[in-house]
């Protein structure tokens, strides 16, 4: 399920970042611009998901350290 509020808020923030940062980034190298837009795109795409209830990096790490975690929960 998408969370529309988070998605729209992120869209507005991404747009604002591009509007305000573009004049400063214009003179940077092509690579810098590419990184800027790629990272924004990743952030924007992630905002389309229901992140709190989705498995993610932290879930995988939890699985990795499970034996140690069990020791702490004793």
């Amino acid at each position: 399920m998408m969370r529309w509020g988070a998605f729209f808020a992120t869209t507005v923030i991404v747009a604002l970042i591009i509007i305000f940062q573009w004049p400063k980034i214009k003179q940077n190298s092509k690579k810098d611009k590419l990184a800027f837009f790629m990272l924004l795109l990743i952030g924007w795409v992630l905002s389309m998901f229901d992140l709190p209830n989705m498995a993610g990096p932290t879930t995988w790490i939890e699985a990795l350290f499970k034996p140690f975690g069990k020791f702490m929960e004793q």
Binding site: I17, I42, L46, L51
Partner: peptide, 16 residues
């Protein structure tokens, strides 16, 4: 700024 967005998203990811 792009990382700022990622930071907020990661703060919610897998943490209901």
């Amino acid at each position: 700024w792009p990382i700022g967005i990622l930071l907020v998203e990661f703060s919610f990811w897998s943490f209901p």
